[in-house]
Design a binder for these strands. Structure first.
Ligand code: FES
Ligand code: FES
Lengths: 143, 143
DNA sequence: TCTTAAATATGATTAATATCATGTTTTTAG
DNA sequence: CTAAAAACATGATATTAATCATATTTAAGA
């Protein structure tokens, strides 16, 4: 469902949401191993997210990646869509051109309602929401 | 969520469920293009399913693959698990060791209930169920 | 201004999937 | 008993995704 890349991106974004802000930036090398993702790999992903304004970054000495309150308003789904694309998450699981009720594949009725629910939730939850859950120790970030 | 391989396998199995039985076997070369899957590729997948008794096969002249009433009692999930493995479908989406309520990852509560529902449905539906839907033109098999 | 430190852009390499190919075994019919 | 036709077993190749590497750009501070 999710690619490795978006798993990694989500982990990194949430880690940054907990540990950074405008005045506390963090370099890739200082957190990549904390979330157990290869440095060069996560760097590439975060660069893409920074370009798309989901997270923030600053070049040069004392620079790094960081997440502002404004960044935190972005949803989990936005991150997934940037990394994986809409198609991966919304297309027909058996390969029909379109996935909809008009011309459903044999497993559409089995998976579509659940998947829609899932997508709706991922669209409704922001980085901030999940960061709060983490702070309250209600959930745990994989290493 | 599903690999290409299990998509293909499902398409092939459902096609066979509609068009074959003990007395009407079908060779790979006679249906692979009907479901738009490379001949050698689908052959390999079906051989695995035949070995696991999900479908039936006969070697030699007048042989081929076919699906018996007994075969039709197998569930969709069985096919997916044989091709993709349990892990692909049930593991934590962010990469936690185990996926459960005891130590949930940040998106567990967003995706787990829906996914469980989905899995339950895939486990409850048999090849026969979906074949019947196809016969009634309630659903459509991707080419 | 110059050095250093960071992200950025781009491309190379490696690993995993998907795809293709081919020789072997089994079965049927003549 | 033999020839042909099918699945079966195994491995090779190609494509895609994951990972790594590096030169470039930008900014800070001396
Ligand atoms: S049509 Fe296949 S999943 Fe919706
Ligand atoms: S713990 Fe991550 S999906 Fe369940």
């Amino acid at each position: 469902m999710l690619s490795n890349s978006s798993k990694y991106a989500l982990k990194a974004v949430l880690y940054l949401a907990l540990h950074t802000d405008e005045n506390n930036k963090m370099m890739v090398k200082d957190f990549s191993e904390r979330i157990n993702v290869p440095k060069a790999y996560i760097a590439k992903l975060l660069q893409e997210l920074a370009k798309r304004k989901i997270i923030s970054s600053a070049k040069g000495p004392y620079g790094g990646f960081y997440i502002t309150e404004s960044n935190k308003k972005h949803t989990i789904m936005e991150i997934i869509e940037i990394i994986d694309g809409k198609k991966r998450i919304e297309s027909c699981m058996l390969g029909l051109e379109d996935c909809n009720e008009k011309k459903p594949c044999p497993i559409h009725s089995l998976i579509s309602p659940s998947r829609s629910k899932m997508i709706a939730l991922l669209k409704s939850k922001t980085i901030d929401d999940l960061a709060k859950d983490l702070e309250l120790n209600k959930v745990f970030l994989p290493v």
